[in-house]
Amino acid sequence: MKRKGLGFYLRIYGKILAQDLKSKMSYRADFIISTIGMIFTNIAGFISFWILFQNFPSVGGWSYYEMLFLYGFSLVSLTPVQCFFDNNWSLRMYVYSGDFIKYCFRPINLFFYYQSEVFDIKGLGQLAFGIGTLAYSWSRLGLDFTPLMLLKMIIFLLTASLIMIALQNAAAATCFWIQNSFYVLDLVTRFKDYAKYPITIFSPVFRFIFTFVMPVAFIAYYPSFVILRPDEVPLLSWLSPLIGVLFFWLSYKIWMKGAMSYSGTGS
């Protein structure tokens, strides 16, 4: 098959996105309520955070604003998975009903076509909230603001989000082998709530697990070192972009392996 360029895929993505937004807009009330619900979730998360720190000045050597930075970082880096890969949640339904076969007949990359079908606008509220939190804690911590810092920030945010995308892809792909992957997906989604805590609070065993087995520490903890404490960056922080890309590639392979062995339901 002839390889198609990036420009081609971007153009296709734009077209599919426009269709998706049009169909979403026809359920306007649902759209508005869902967006408010998402904002509620973020505000509640912030309030519980705030209540905690009303009672305690710091947690495990991390100050309030540093924790806030981690929290904002995790919110922003979790936005892409919410916006661009939300169709993973429907995968098990498509596979179960046999509708998945329709994606197999398109002359473009299967994974790309499947994920491009849904764009979740709700994630944008989270993005705005996360950026606000980051900016606030950034100024309160008195960190410098230089173009280089900004560049580092963007690179590390992007690669951090690859980790969560990879986890979700792999979790969703389990439905090609086991019928009901909802519980696996749900379990993995709960991981992201733990991303906002510094892993130094855990015992060595769980530090190891959260770094290498379930790599949630790469969603906020390791990458934010580069900005937050530039003098004591551990090696794993510099490796985190590499690890993000590696994990994404692996999850893509798993997903595609499942999709390629899919034989339909016969209807």
Partner: peptide, 10 residues
């Protein structure tokens, strides 16, 4: 409202 997700999450 015929909206489930949003209402439930709130």
């Amino acid at each position: 409202t015929e909206s489930i997700w949003g209402i439930n999450i709130m």
